[in-house]
Lab assay of single mutants.
Amino acid sequence: MASQGTKRSYEQMETDGERQNATEIRASVGKMIDGIGRFYIQMCTELKLSDYEGRLIQNSLTIERMVLSAFDERRNKYLEEHPSAGKDPKKTGGPIYKRVDRKWMRELVLYDKEEIRRIWRQANNGDDATAGLTHMMIWHSNLNDTTYQRTRALVRTGMDPRMCSLMQGSTLPRRSGAAGAAVKGVGTMVMELIRMIKRGINDRNFWRGENGRKTRSAYERMCNILKGKFQTAAQRAMMDQVRESRNPGNAEIEDLIFLARSALILRGSVAHKSCLPACVYGPAVASGYDFEKEGYSLVGIDPFKLLQNSQVYSLIRPNENPAHKSQLVWMACNSAAFEDLRVLSFIRGTKVSPRGKLSTRGVQIASNENMDAMESSTLELRSRYWAIRTRSGGNTNQQRASAGQISVQPAFSVQRNLPFDKPTIMAAFTGNTEGRTSDMRAEIIRMMEGAKPEEMSFQGRGVFELSDERAANPIVPSFDMSNEGSYFFGDNAEEYDN
Rank of each mutant, 00 (worst) to 15 (best):
E495R: 12
P277C: 08
L172E: 05
K293R: 13
D468W: 00
R26L: 07
Y40G: 03
M163C: 14
M159T: 02
M239K: 05
T62I: 00
G177Q: 04
S402H: 15
S335L: 10
I225Q: 11
M66F: 14
R118W: 11
M196N: 08
M189S: 08
V280C: 13
T378I: 11
N395T: 12
D145T: 12
P303E: 09
M239W: 03
V190F: 01
E115M: 10
S486Q: 03
Q235V: 02
Q459V: 02
L276R: 06
T437M: 02
K91A: 05
M456N: 12
A373Y: 04
V414D: 00
R317S: 09
S377I: 08
S28F: 11
I347K: 08
W207C: 06
S326L: 07
S170W: 10
M136H: 06
A179W: 04
D372G: 08
R117Y: 11
S176M: 01
E18I: 09
Y40N: 01
Y10Q: 09
D145V: 02
N483K: 14
G228Q: 06
P453N: 15
R99V: 10
L108K: 12
G462Y: 09
G268M: 03
D372T: 09
M331C: 11
R121M: 11
K7S: 00
E294D: 12
G126I: 02
T92A: 12
T424V: 13
D340R: 03
I36K: 02
A179D: 02
P354H: 06
K31M: 11
M1S: 05
K113V: 03
V280W: 05
F489T: 14
K293P: 09
E107C: 05
R106A: 10
M331I: 13
D240S: 12
G268V: 15
D101H: 05
L307G: 08
R175N: 09
I388C: 04
S377T: 14
S413L: 09
G295I: 11
M43R: 09
E369S: 10
K87I: 08
L154Y: 02
K325R: 08
R261S: 06
L344A: 04
E380N: 10
A233Y: 00
Q405D: 03
L193T: 13
V280D: 00
Y496C: 08
E320F: 07
E115D: 14
D88G: 07
E46R: 13
R150P: 12
I116W: 06
Q327D: 11
I301S: 09
S392Y: 01
D16L: 00
Y97Q: 13
